[in-house]
Structure formats: C-alpha cells, structure tokens
Design a binder for these strands. Structure first.
Length: 565
RNA sequence: GCGUUCGUAGCUCAGCUGGAUAGAGCACUCGCCUUCUAAGCGAGCGGUCUCAGGUUCGAAUCCUGACGGACGUACCA
C-alpha cells in the first residue's frame, strides 16, 4: 500500500480543482496525534509564491480535498497547515486487503532493476573481525530489501585473494604441509607464525618473494597451494556467514584475482582514449578538479586496486548488465570511489545511465571514542563476537521451563545473533559508531529482542485462540487507528530505505510499530470474556498483520523470529 | 595545509527533501502481574540541538565562518 502516494494524489486533485498550476510537495506524517494522521505543509510556501494569504490558500485547498474515501476530515491550523484525518473504514478495508495478500499488500517493482550489491569483501589473509560486520550485514540487508521489492539482485563478494602477503602465507603453508592445513583453522595464528618466519629467516623471506612472482606468472604448483589456502580461508568466512544468516555463497564470490586478465586491457583502453599520463613513472589518470591523480599502474608495472575496481566496474555494467551498482564499503574509501567512478564514466567503461553508489558506513571507534585499532591486538574476531553474543543470550533466558536444551540453544542463537545485527543495522550507517560489547549485546530497549518478543506474544495469543482468523477489521479506538495506519506505511518505508540504502529506517519503523502494538496489547484485551466476537476477530486480524510485518521486516534485516520466548 | 564528514539529554543514538511544544533507549525516581508472555506498559526527571552570523513567515535541518573529534590526502586495499 502506497499510502502517502494516494494522499498526494488527492492533494494534487485539489490543486487542479482550485486552479493552482503547481506541483504540491508531499504530505508528511502528522507530528502529533492531535493533528490527525497526515499533514500538508505546502500552503505557506505557495502563499508566498502567489502573494496570497496562506490560511486562505489552505482553506481553498482543503475545500477541494475529496472527503469520504481515504480522508474523512481536514482542518486548517497554525499559519496554514492542513491536517488530514484518514477514514477508519477505509483504513480497515486496506488492512483487510493486506491481510489477504501474501506480500502484505506490497507490490513488486514492475520494471525490475538489475542491481549489483558488492559487500563483505573479506581479505583472505586475515580472519574476519568486527570491522567486517557492517559491510556484511548492511550489504546483505540491502540485497534482501531490493529482492523483496522486486529488483534483480546480484550479490558480489569481492574477496581479497591477491597481493604480496600471499607469497609469505603460501611459502609457510608449503613448509608446514598437512600440519599447516590443520593450523589454518586459526588464520590469525597462521599469519603471525608466517610473519615470524618471514622476519627471522632470510631464506624463507626470499622464497616468499619468489612465490609472489611465481603465482603471478601462473606456476601450477604455487597456484595449487594458493587455491588450497583460499579455499580454507573462504571456509572460515562461510562459517561466519552461516552464523550471521547472511546469504552469501561461493556463487557470489568474484575475487580480485578474477579480474587479473583484464587489467592490462584496462590500461590499454585508457591509453587508447588518451586518458593516461605518466607521472613519476606511474600511469595515472588526471581528473578535472582533482589534484591527486588516480594511479592505475605502478612505476614497476604492477596494478593497483583502482585498476581492479575499474575492471570490476565494467564487468558488472557490461557483462552482468547492472543498472545500479552499490559498494557497501567503509566511508574512508570515499575519495577512492569518487575517483574510480569518475574514471569509469569518462572512459565509458560504464554507460551513462548506470548508477554507481558508494554505500559508505562510519568508522568503528572504541569505548573512549578513539578509532578502533586493529594492529595492537585490539582486534575482536567476528567469530568470537558471535559466540559471545550467543552465550550472553543463553544466560539471559530466564524461563527455561517447557523448553528442551536444544530449544534453548536454538533460541539463544536467534536472540544473540539478532542482537548483534540489529545493534549495527539500527544506527545511521554514515556515522561513526562505538564498539561496545554491552551495547551491542544488550537485550533491552530498541533491540531485535523487543520485536521478537512482540512476535512471540502474538503467536501465544494465536495458540490460545486456536481457530481460523477472519479479516473483518473494525477500528475501535485511537490506538487501533494509529496501529492500522502504521501497518499501512510499511511499503513506503521499505521503498525509502531501499532508495537511501538505509537499514536503520526499517528498524526505526519496526520499533515504532511494535511500540504501538505493545500499548495496544496492554490496553485492548483480545481473548477476554467480555470482548465481543467481532472485536475479538478484528483485534486478532490486526495482531496477525503486526506479526507478519515484524517477521517480514526482520527477515529483510536477516534476523529470525521465534514462536516462543 | 587542503578535502570529506560529524558535533542533539549524564551515556548511546533517532530526527536533517526547512514546519506547530526537539524524540527514543540506557541510567535515575515512582506506579502497574488472581486477568492474552512484566525481556512488558504508564508517569516523572533530564535540552541555549558546539558557538557566531546569514537566508526564510518559520532553521536541529539550508548557507558562511569559528572551535572540537574522526577520516582521507599519488604508486597498500
């Protein structure tokens, strides 16, 4: 249900009827319940433009707003606000329609857009740490969201599997043989040991350097070892993805090395277009208005990540056919993407109509507000964080009666992992954020547990009721009115969140929805004796809609629900 | 130095396509379980929206400047 859009149509009609040849600004949700459900604030600006009295214009417009359908009442307030009240019977009918629709009345994009979402992108030389959390879950949420709205999503995991440190790791893998394979289960440790060997033993260091060259020239033995290493490392990532309920699979992996063959061609094509310029021995693209050039080939002939990104961009645009490409990457790389996108467009590697977006997110800070250091042993491994989350969730499960040990474990997993993901998804992605165990693993307030709890409460009612729910909704009070309108807003919230690539808009919505539901639950009895059959059925149907909205919303965020808590 | 970005309650954060008395959670105080799951609900406390100008009928939101933090600033990714 595109609620706001429908109201905007009515306003537009009123404009036409009033003979005003302007495009009205969109209505917004009322700031206070006393001001109705929606408000139109465009009269003041319009008055200015037409040189008229704002209240008079508001009066004129309000007089032309069609009543009886969606809107039941209008009111002029303040300097010229037009407050709008929605028609309860119309709301009820709309909710009933949503009830009968498997997609809650949310339409699918009729012209699906092919979208590439690039996210996670772990480095194969290292274990995933908390710094990878945001890209992984924001990206997955964005992909889920676009998929739900009907777009054709292509997930891309641009893993870092190429570079000088691999020579060292592979040399060490070979040296340790099968024993080394076993040690790979702790990548961090493996890396440290390899580094220690590299620093201590000159012969080993030379061998490592040789290996880099050999891999790059296609030596089969070295490539086999390299492949073995990558497989193992990727296995670690998949373990994390599994725990996180992130949908990335091997199919989505397009590693850096995948683009190797195209790199010389990228340089050649740039050269052919006269975009390259040598500077201090390196091949550069100098962009207008940019002081610092984009270096695409080192003085020694090696390629850089800008080169790989250009190759990846044109692969995605031309081979995959994407019309929107989203890079869910740390905000610190903003300058890099700005430049690479510009090169991709000026070189026509990527057609003009393809939207390139850097879905940036903030830097992680420690508790004192300083940047989270990853070098000084301050790294928190992602796998450890997730395990800790599950342990904490398990400790907090109070009512263990009636639940088997397996059920408790399962519940702890869902609550704990949900808490971690929700904590991250619910803050504005662009701002920096504080990494704090207590905050992240908290189960109070605006957390996933709040939504899961509401969901479980509703399921509990359904179990008690046991019958078939018929959607025959009647809005019996102010609270039910607001709850229903909130339910109908879901589609537009999702659309806006997709457009802005902002998961926190979804969490904010869910929190408001559930907040309303909790009050409704406390105040409006459902299965009590003195509740009429009609009212009972109506409230059951509203509860069912709330439950399904929570479930769908959390599913997009990659968080599960449970029937019992 | 230059650039990007942020600065909202004691803490963590929403709100930022300009709109009516700036919202939550945590913490603190006080109510509510013989009644559908109290991991909940209600009430209270708490703010010169960093500061100074400007635009506007109207600014937390837009513009300029200052201060403070974070990040980036050519051969790492």
């Amino acid at each position: 249900m595109k609620l706001k859009e429908q109201i905007n149509h009515l306003i537009q009609d009123a404009f036409v009827k009033a003979g005003i040849d302007e495009k009205p600004i969109s209505v917004t949700e009322a700031t206070q319940p006393q001001f109705g459900d929606y408000q139109f604030n465009g009269a003041m600006a319009l008055a200015k433009k037409l040189g008229m009295n704002p209240r008079q214009i508001a009066q004129e417009l309000a007089g032309h707003i069609e009543l009886g359908g969606i809107i039941t009442k209008t009111q002029i307030a303040g300097p010229g606000f037009i407050n709008l009240w929605l028609n309860p019977s119309w709301i009820a009918t709309a909710c009933e329609a949503a009830f009968h629709d498997t997609r809650l009345g949310i339409s699918k994009n009729e012209n699906p857009l092919k979208v590439v979402v690039d996210y996670s992108g772990p480095n194969m030389a290292k274990q995933m740490h908390v710094g990878h959390l945001r890209s992984t879950i924001i990206g997955d949420t964005l992909a889920n969201l676009l998929e739900f709205l009907g777009d054709e999503v292509i997930r891309q995991n641009h893993i870092g599997d190429w570079g000088t440190q691999f020579g060292m790791l592979i040399a060490y893998l070979e040296e340790t043989g099968n024993e080394g394979s076993a040690q790979l289960c702790d990548l961090e440790q493996f890396y440290k040991e390899a580094k220690a060997r590299f620093d201590a033993d000159e012969a080993f260091a030379n061998k490592a350097r040789e290996y880099v060259v050999k891999i790059q020239s296609g030596d089969q033995h070295c490539l086999n070892l390299w492949q073995k290493f990558i497989d193992s490392s990727l296995g670690h990532c998949e373990e994390v993805y599994g725990k996180l309920c992130v949908k990335l699979t091997r199919e989505d992996v397009k590693a850096e090395s995948f683009y190797n063959e195209d790199l010389p061609q990228v340089i050649e094509d740039l050269l052919a277009q006269g975009l390259l310029k040598e500077s201090d021995g390196a091949q550069c693209v100098f962009l207008e208005g940019e002081e610092i050039p984009v270096i695409v080939q080192k003085g020694g002939g090696g390629y850089l990540y800008a080169t790989t990104d250009l190759a990846a961009l044109r692969y995605r645009a031309n081979v995959l056919g994407a019309k929107r490409i989203c890079y869910v990457v740390d905000a610190r790389q903003g300058e890099h993407f700005k430049q690479v996108f510009q090169v991709a467009k000026t070189s026509h590697f990527v057609p003009e109509d393809v939207k390139l977006e850097h879905v940036a997110f903030g830097t992680m800070m420690d508790r004192s507000g300083k940047p989270f250091k990853t070098r000084d042993g301050g790294t928190v491994k992602l796998i450890d964080l997730l395990e800790e989350a599950v342990v904490r969730a398990k400790e907090s499960i109070k009512n263990k009666e009636g639940m088997s040990l397996e059920e408790i474990d399962e519940l702890a997993k869902i609550i704990g992992i949900g808490a971690v993901k929700y904590a991250d998804l619910s803050i504005n992605r662009e701002s920096n954020y504080i990494f704090d165990w207590d905050k992240m693993l908290s189960l109070e307030g605006n957390t996933s547990l709040y939504m899961q709890y509401a969901y479980a409460r509703i399921q509990s009612i359904f179990r008690r009721f046991g019958g078939e729910i018929e959607a025959n909704i009647q809005i019996s009070d102010e609270l039910e009115h607001r709850l229903s309108v909130m339910l109908l807003r879901f589609e537009e919230v999702l659309l806006k969140a997709a457009q802005d690539a902002a998961p926190n808009q979804i969490t904010t919505y869910l929190y408001e929805l559930v907040g309303l539901f909790m009050r409704f639950y406390e105040q409006n009895p459902i299965l009590k004796e003195d509740v009429s059959k009609e009212l009972q059925m109506s409230r059951l149907a509203l509860s069912a809609l709330v439950a399904r909205t929570i479930k769908e919303g959390l599913e997009i965020l990659g968080i599960e629900v449970v029937n019992k808590i």
